[in-house]
Each structure stands twice: as C-alpha cells, then as structure tokens.
Amino acid sequence: MSIKKREHTDWLLKKIFKATGLITIALLAGIFLMLLYNSIAFFADVKPLDFFTGSQWDPESNKSKYGIAPLLVSTGLVTLGAMLIAIPLGIFTAAYLSEFAHPKVKTILKPLIEMLAAIPSVAIGFLGIVLVGPGIAKIFGIANGLNAFNGSVLLAVMALPTIITISEDAINAVPLSHREASLALGANKWQTIFKVTLPAALPGLIAAVMLGLGRALGETMTVLMATGNAAVMPKGFLDAVRTITATIAIEMGEVPYRTTHYFALFAIAVILFIITLIINLLGEYFANRLRKFHA
C-alpha cells in the first residue's frame, strides 16, 4: 500500500471509530425520546395531574386508575431503607480497608467485595424469598416477610460493593499531607480519621452514595421477588410495596400493545429515568468536586 492509501485508511477508520462515539450520544437520546414519545400518548388519555397526585395505581379495574404516588412512595421507602443500612456499613468498611487493613488482608477482601458485586440480582431476590423474608417474618411476628424492609436489606447488600469501592477510592485520594498535618498538630489517629480524612473525602463519599442509590433505585428483580408487590400506598417498612421497576416488569408482559395501560408503563419509566439521571448527575458533580479539590 502506498503512503497515501495507508493514510486514507487511517482517516477512514478514524471516522468509523468516531461514529461509534456518536452512537453513544444517539443511544442516550434515543432511550429518552422513546420513553417520552410513548408517554405523550399516555398523557393524551390521562391528565398529568391525576397521574402525579392520584393515590391509586389500578389499571386493571373498570375505572382504571393511574396514580404514580404509591409506586413512587414504595420506591422511595425501599431505597431509603437500603441507604440507611448501606451508607454507614459501606463507609465504615471503606474506612477500615483504607486506614487499618493490612495490605495482605486487603488483597483478600477486595476480591470478596467484587464477588459480592458479581452475584446476579435474581439470586439476591431468591434469598429474599427463602432466607431473609422468613427471617423477618419470624423476628417481627408477621405472616410473611415479603415487604419493604426485606427489599431494603437486599438492596443494601447490592449497593454495598459500589459504595465501598468508590468510598475507598475517595478516602485514598485524601493526600497524606492532610493526615500528617493533623497528626503533627497532636491529633490522634481517630480524630484524624473522623475530623480530617472523612470530611476531606466527603464529596467522594457523596458520589459513592449517589451511585449506590442509583443502583438501588433502578434494581428490578430483587424488589420484584422480595417486596410483595402490593400496589397500594404503604404505611411502613413492614408493608408490602411495589416499586416502579417491579410494576413495569410485572405489567409489561401482560398488557396489550399500544393501550393506555401500555403507555402508562412508559410514563412511569420516564419518571424513573429522570430520577436516576438526576442522581447520576449529582454523583458526577460531587466526583468532579473531589477531583478539583485534590488537583
């Protein structure tokens, strides 16, 4: 091949590679527009006000009701519970790993955390049915343990690896000089960790929590299997709940094509999409702040 031909090949391939980059933008836009397009058909049938304020989700009855509130509250409740468990557990573990763990212990623990992350969500959901749910039922003396609390415990387990890994990176990124300065001023190791290291890593810790939160919010199989799937407004953690993701998973398989009900599922999906997008953008914002802070 002549040099001209070789340079032409290079030019052509660069364009092709660039096109794949553009495809990622098109994909994100395509997903959003697809959801939006189908939602518009829904809002032609159902008033947006009824959708956002209605307290019942009951598409199957004669007077089908499409209130997203119980689904939103369910999603929020399960996720809140998951975060209450996973945030302290995850950050403490990350602090232990980066500040105390012997390097050898670390080389064992880190793959273990990756193993935890690798377990498929359907297997975690299965354990919610056969192990965690019955346990909860026994402890609280209720008929069955398929409720919001069960979902929270399982989602916490699923969010943990994300929170631990990113928090550990954030803590490791705190410059040694910060800690040395604190120690030199006479602070002990504990004061240094809680008063200097963790606050300095805070933006990164928030980013970690946001990513864990995003993962928990978007999880489908676990909550579908373990939370009882009652589409009514929950009163507490021991009530059965039905999240947005579970609703889509249950109803999309049975709903007739291009009916109001079908479009309704895209409408709740677009809400979920926007919520996770905001969470991700927040996470990114804090991750960037951490980067700038240390640069």
Binding site: L211, L217, T220, A269, T276, L277
Partner: peptide, 10 residues
Amino acid sequence: GIPSIIYGLF
C-alpha cells in the same frame, strides 16, 4: 446509570 429495566423497554 440507566436502570436495566429501561433498557428492556428500549
């Protein structure tokens, strides 16, 4: 960060 179920819809 998009939930996997949304990929299913797409």
